[in-house]
Each structure stands twice: as C-alpha cells, then as structure tokens.
Design a protein around this nucleic acid. Sequence first.
DNA 1: CATCTGACCTAGT
DNA 2: AACTAGGCCAGAT
Length: 108
Amino acid sequence: MADGFERDVYALVRQVPAGRVTTYGAVAKALGKPMGARQVGWVLNNSFKCVPSVPAHRVVNRQGLLTGAVHFPADRPMDEQLKAEGVNIAAGAVVEFERVFWDPNQEL
DNA sequence: CATCTGACCTAGT
DNA sequence: AACTAGGCCAGAT
C-alpha cells in the first residue's frame, strides 16, 4: 500500500473539481504511465475502502461511458453522484463529455 | 501452481 | 478508417 502510483491517483482524482470528469488514460499519463490505465481502475477499486472517499465517480473511460458504474454501490450509483454534481448522464454516458472533461495535464 | 480476466489505453497493421 | 496486438498489475478460478 502507499505505492507512489496509488497515492498519486488519489491526489489527482481528489483535485478534480465537481461537475468535471477525467479519464483513466489522462490520469495514468499524468502519473507517467500512459499504458497503465488499467492499474488506475484497480487503484480506484481500492479507493472504496480508502478514506477519505475518493470521487471515483468523476473518472470515466475515454468514451465518456461509465464503465465502472457496475462496481459502484447500489445506494449511490455513479450517474446519481455525477448528476448531483451537475453532470448530466444519458444512457450511462456523460453528456457533453468533452465539455466537462478535466485534463490533469492541462489544467493542473 | 498456472491461466485468464479485468473501472483501459496506445500503437501498429 | 477498422481491426489486431501489446502493455500494465493484481485478483479470482
């Protein structure tokens, strides 16, 4: 635990502003692992038991689809939290994904 | 113990 | 432009 990668993912995802979404590749690339997108997903999976809770719902795939919604708790689905933050969701995908997209390499 | 799959992405053909 | 292959790390069967 406390791997540089994991710690970086948490820090970066936590810095994502509400109403904005980022992608696994963007985060992975920001961490210096452009091909380590999968690991970002695994780290976020551990983030559920990590405190404070990491806004993993703000992380979606390159297509803007909420692929990880199935791994979210039924009490608080991904689209529900995103909608609560002002992000419109349609068909399990982010509306105007490019508009709400938050690039860690560009904004950070 | 070996093999495959999994919140994916990039590159090459 | 579409498809195939490769890469990353860990968990599950």
